[in-house]
Design a protein around this nucleic acid. Structure first.
Lengths: 342, 342
DNA sequence: CATTGGCACTCACGAACCAAGAGTGCTAAC
DNA sequence: GTTAGCACTCTTGGTTCGTGAGTGCCAATG
């Protein structure tokens, strides 16, 4: 594949990304002041089509890139978009969000990206996989309620509000906490044997164990899948490829229903950006959409994901660099909070 | 307004809600086997139009209800839909969701409603307004991290993961916890004076107070607005009135952007269902949409909201009863968890 | 042999037009 | 007060047709 073909392909993809219209030989020559004639260009375009990088929506229309064309484009042709000083400043500024729960932070980051890129955005909490219990804490909170706080290794904190007929004594609470922590610290699930042991160890008040351990079990189960937050759905609708409501609905439906088990998420390269173009997506529902994902480290090896979803015709270059920057910033924010401001 | 007109109006609204098409005199007579002729019906329809309950999209089309028509319909005409045994069972079944954090529960409930009603759904956490601090708890969680847990009266629990260069001693932590609780328990905000007092009381280790109190302040601020969760957005697109992508986008944009300050939410009747039809919505962006909201009690006077958004042509009767039932169930679930299963 | 101008051909798109169908208002008769 | 009849209106869907952007092929050229 010679140099000229590459330049032409790049020009076509760039053009199509901008205008969303099949690009023809004449208009391309005009706009990109190339030094060849439309006829020559047509030859080359026919060749590129032959090779599978371009296609025609119908005879006698311009060419549009195939997924394979986009692939070559993102891998080799596109020039890396660099964030301007201004853009970086804007990110940093907005990023100074008040961090609270991890989940909140992540969903908020998704919203931020949606706002900045004007694309539909997915953000996912870490896939904790099996996560060890670090600590359980109980404390009375109201005349007749107990708050259970569960901390897992890696930063996940869950709590539950437990209403009771009567509040147990301080002593009982201490004993409960102690026995639960002794038995389950470092565990990754609740076994029948451990429950027995815990009941025995607790003695009086052990009837309270039931709801607490049930909650603990839910927490363990909950960490098995990542939680996925969606935002900026409306931006999908502003893309011309989703002018057809039915298509838009299908995509949106898929995104919001498969939220839980989004299988698109395996990200191998630890820190890189992953781009999935059209049919490269595992899900057939997304076979005419593209997904760009970036991961950000949260703590010891676990990482969250943030990315955008849109039509295959998307501004890969700009989005990739935006996502990289934001993910990096997010990772830094999460790992060394104390040194937050420069 | 005589009885017959009311019956006719009801029939028209029912019909239009089902079919989404302007209803004409002939088809109405056929389908609702009325005992009058189309011509008479036309007279009545003209009268109803005169009164402002009906309108024509264009001359020589059938009639559709005006917002005012819908209003009369929901206030006086529609028969209350009663949930079937099956439907109730389905609700209860799905409702047996694992309760964790309050926010999660609420957003999950929203998703549930979206799935059941096939409408776009909003769910809002309680508008706590000024909420008193009940308790702050700190505990070490990792070699170099501290988890802050803040409990407010009314059931809101917030936590934050605080990374530090070095973990303070157990003693210091106890002292910090004690002084914070002493000074701020029952408070609704952080005053400069209190901060001073707290620092003095803590003594050694008081440099840790800064990030903790900052978080506390964020929590106080955070409770000023309700948090709003959106789900089932894609259902909006399946309504024929949103076949126009532009309109759908505008509505969706409004819903997801105004999430924070949704001013549509003041609900006066404590336990009832509130229905806002078209222009009755404060927001002009929703002037051709309807909103049905139900509130559910969370604890002492505070309540959350759950509701659906759709075109003015919505199945008010069914939705209202569904929402009522779900909200009631939710409230019961939240207030007496222990007696969960019958 | 790659490049280019010329030419005939194709196809989506929008405008204009037309027929069918559903619905209306009005009027005169019951 | 109710109804049948009638003329009229307006949307909807299908067809036709011209236009324009684009193509492939070919012959001529450096």
């Amino acid at each position: 594949m010679d140099m000229r073909k590459r330049r032409i392909l790049k020009a076509i993809v760039d053009e199509y990304i901008q205008n969303a219209e099949p690009v023809g030989s004449k208009s391309l020559v005009d706009r990109h002041n190339m030094d060849i004639s439309p006829a020559t260009l047509r030859h080359e375009m026919a060749a590129l089509e032959e090779m599978g990088y371009l296609e025609q929506p119908h005879t006698s229309a311009g060419r549009i890139p195939t997924p394979r064309g986009y692939r070559l484009y993102v891998d080799e042709l596109m020039q890396r978009h660099r964030l301007s000083q201004q853009e970086m400043l804007a990110v940093n500024d907005t990023m100074r969000l008040r961090i609270q729960e991890l989940d909140k932070l992540i969903s908020e980051a998704g919203r931020l990206v949606a706002g900045m890129t004007r694309y539909a955005t997915v953000a996912a909490s870490p896939h904790v996989g099996v996560s060890r219990l670090q600590k359980v804490e109980l404390f009375p909170a109201e005349p007749s309620a107990l708050v259970i706080v569960v901390v897992l290794e890696g930063g996940v904190v869950k709590n539950k509000w437990l209403r009771l007929a009567a509040l147990p004594s301080a002593q009982t609470i201490t004993r409960l906490t102690a026995s639960i922590n002794t038995v389950f610290s470092g565990q990754t699930a609740i076994s029948f044997y451990d429950v027995e042991r815990c009941i025995a160890m607790t003695g009086e008040g052990s009837e309270l164990l039931h709801p607490i351990l049930e909650f603990l079990s839910d927490v363990f189960k909950g960490t098995e899948h990542r939680e996925v937050f969606l935002s900026g759905e409306s931006h999908l609708l502003s893309q011309p490829e989703y002018r057809d409501v039915l298509k838009a609905r299908r995509t949106l439906e898929y995104l919001s229903e498969q939220r839980h088990s989004l299988s698109l998420l395996p990200l191998d390269k630890p820190d890189g950006v992953k781009i999935m173009i059209g049919p490269e997506n595992a899900a057939t529902e997304l076979s005419d959409a593209s997904v760009i994902l970036a991961s950000f480290p949260i703590s010891d090896g676990q990482s969250g994901l943030i990315g955008v979803v849109g039509p295959t015709r998307m501004d890969y270059s700009k989005l990739a660099s935006h996502l990289t920057y934001i993910a990096a910033r997010l990772g830094r924010l999460l790992q060394h909070e104390e040194e937050e401001s420069p």
